[in-house]
Amino acid sequence: EDAEEARQSLQAVLRADSYGGLGGAEVGVDRFAIMRSSEAPPERLLQSVGAATGGAIPELSRMPLDCAATSRNMRTMRLALDRFIEAGGDAAAAGFSDTVARTLRDSSRFRDIVEQSGFQLAYQPVVSLETGRLHHFEALARFSPDTSPAETIQLAEDLDMIQAFDLSVVRSIVRELEAQPRSTRIAANLSAHSLMIDGFLEEILGLVSDSRDLRRRLILEITETRKIQDLDRANSLIALLRKAGHIVCLDDFGAGAASLDYLRRLEVDFIKIDGRYIQSMTEGSRDALVVKHLVALCKELGVATIAEMVETASVARLAQELGVELGQGWIFSKPLDTPKWSPQSTPKPARGRVGAREIWI
């Protein structure tokens, strides 16, 4: 009862001290955030909170907001709060201002990456598991040597800047396709978050509006780190991409939010089976059983399959035996600086048990 009374008193204090009486939000255990006037003295808030909680001494951190860049500040504040909450007591000791400063630096750094095309693309072959022949390349973004691509792309999504980055990557791929033979096909990763933004689809289609041949050669892989909320709208957008001539692939199927509901409601040409299933599967294993039935279901639906992270000949052979059409991984090739690759000049069949179909690596 005492705790509840203190909580109500605290909420009243935060409401009274907040801008326009909007109140505060509890963003973590014993952590609250409010928006208040820059002219309001912090000492008043500290004293009021202490009185409301029976003498507790709070730690107060401030993040000044520049009204000239409201949307950027709001995105930055949201990400800084997330980092602050996740980091726990250490972040509280270091101070929220340090977290904010780091977030602002990251935001500025990524904005420069997008504006200056400050990234490189590496091209990893995707091959037929039956013949070993090249089907297409996947373009993989690379940043500085000491920066994880996954972390940087996650930052872009958190800051709602991923759509600008996706467009920049596609522009680079289109230029590469124009310089390559007409047989070259390259897959670009598109965030599902970008796809769902109004106007993004039109911008993507506009990049290759004059050439249906380029659209046929530009494969689009839909990636997602957050669950797609409106699958019907997502499917209608994918249908427009396919109608325009693009092959569409659903990336990392089986990981994160991607589920059978996606397969049921999103009409795509390929799904890429998450590498965690592929890497760990052995003959007769549960992972192999899941892959086997997933492939069978995809065939019934007219969807082709790609196995990623294929790193050994035995896994390549097993994936083929389970019905997977295409494979991608270091057993075939590491990512390359340019989209030029061919199978070994004198390929040798993978060793297999008697009666197994052979594949060329």
Score class of each variant (00 low, 15 high):
A316V: 05
Q120M: 13
R36G: 01
R242W: 01
F110A: 10
F84P: 00
T338Y: 02
G20N: 04
L201M: 10
T184F: 01
D261R: 15
S37P: 00
G28Q: 04
G50D: 10
E157F: 01
S117R: 15
K334F: 05
A187F: 09
R15F: 03
R233L: 15
E283A: 12
Q154E: 14
Y123W: 09
A101P: 01
I173L: 14
I306K: 06
R226S: 12
R276L: 11
S259F: 12
Q328P: 09
G199Y: 02
P41C: 11
G355I: 11
V291W: 05
R351C: 02
I113K: 14
G24E: 03
I306G: 10
L266Q: 07
S37C: 01
S333A: 15
L155F: 08
S128G: 10
A257T: 08
G21V: 12
D90K: 14
G20M: 03
D2A: 11
M63V: 08
G355A: 12
D98P: 00
S280T: 05
G50Y: 05
M281Y: 01
H136R: 08
A51W: 00
A307S: 09
D98H: 13
G355N: 09
D287Y: 12
H246Q: 01
T346F: 11
P58H: 07
A356G: 08
L14Y: 04
D198H: 04
Q344F: 02
T282F: 08
E115L: 14
N235F: 03
Q47V: 04
T70D: 01
A156Y: 07
V49N: 07
V27S: 07
P343W: 04
V100F: 06
R105D: 15
V170K: 07
M77I: 06
D30E: 12
D112G: 04
I57Y: 01
D287M: 12
R185S: 15
S18L: 03
R264C: 07
F332C: 06
N73D: 11
A12P: 08
S97F: 04
Q8E: 10
F119M: 09
A150E: 15
S61W: 03
L318K: 13
M77A: 13
L22H: 10
L294K: 01
I162M: 14
A244V: 01
E283Q: 09
G329W: 07
